[in-house]
Design a protein around this nucleic acid. Structure first.
Length: 282
DNA sequence: ATGGTGGATTGTCCA
């Protein structure tokens, strides 16, 4: 009944014949959802993810430009926001219910929101603190907050083991050597330091999460972010994979067709991050 | 080692 009604909505979804129904999800640090409303619309229209998780909306929830998203078929949204900084939103053309938020490290920032789809899958959308410039909590409070945030994530997923869950977002850490343009050059650069990589692994393991992007694309360099400060981001290609799609083992086998839309970095007035996609047959 | 760019806001703070 649910599948039939979804199909009748005409969202270009197709039954696989085995009772499973695919849905496509994307995560994108948009760096101001109001400034980049046209880019969000373009992504929705050109690529049609069923669910789009945004980070760094930099907008109170009531100022997110939902009208155009609704008109494009994305009639559902779960979001958290604040003025000027942070902010996370989940846009969807599938019904979803608000599943709450967490204020890890007690920062009072809008960095997490969860939503539950009708198929029982919970989606966690995260914007992990960037952590400042100096990778030493003694001299840089922001780095300590980043580590504390990850430790709280770890403890939360450890005490309340997630099931049928997808975790996406800008985790602000590139864990693998081939997730950065230069492993040795970045060992002391925030986002790729060993302590951060270790903390991220602890968080991932606490929830039992599978890295879906790397399940699908196990080999080769993968980036989802290129600094604004590079003169020619494309030619220099000094990227990092900061944006991730994870899933719990009970649904990780349903995932496929991951992709990172590098071209989006070349759109007019781009975000410094590009969307990461995955499809789940559930 | 340094500074480079971009967004929100309107002073700087953040990435």
């Amino acid at each position: 009944m649910v599948a039939t009604s979804r199909f009748a909505l005409g969202c270009a979804r197709s039954d696989l014949g085995d009772g499973s129904l695919p849905f496509t999800l994307a995560t994108w640090n948009i760096n101001s959802v109001r400034l980049r409303e046209p880019l969000v619309l373009k992504l929705l229209q050109d690529h049609g993810p069923d669910v789009l998780c945004l980070q760094e909306c930099k907008s109170p929830v009531d100022k997110i430009p939902t009208e155009a998203f609704h008109a494009a078929g994305y009639t559902h949204m779960v979001a958290r926001g604040q003025k000027g900084y942070n902010g996370v939103a989940i846009l969807s053309r599938l019904p979803l219910e608000d599943a709450g938020d967490q204020d890890f490290a007690t920062l009072g920032h809008a960095r997490h929101v969860a939503a539950k789809l009708e198929n029982g899958v919970t989606i966690h959308n995260f914007y992990v603190p960037a952590g400042g410039d100096v990778p030493d909590r003694e001299v840089n409070e922001k780095f300590g907050q980043k580590l504390d945030y990850l430790a709280d994530m770890r403890d939360w997923f450890h005490s309340d083991k997630p099931q049928k869950s997808i975790l996406v977002g800008d985790l602000n850490i590139a864990p693998r050597e081939d997730d950065v343009w230069g492993h040795k050059q970045l060992l002391k650069v925030v986002s790729h330091t060993p302590i951060e990589v270790e903390k991220l692994a602890e968080t991932q393991n606490a929830g039992g999460f599978v890295d879906i992007t790397r399940q699908d694309i196990p080999e080769g360099n993968l980036y989802s972010w290129w600094s604004y400060r590079a003169k020619d981001w494309d030619a220099a290609d000094k990227g990092r994979r900061l944006d991730h799609v994870w899933a719990t083992p009970d649904i990780s086998n349903a995932a496929h067709s991951s992709k990172i839309l590098r071209d989006v970095r070349g759109w007019e007035k781009p975000s410094d991050h590009v969307p990461v996609f995955a499809t789940f047959d559930l």
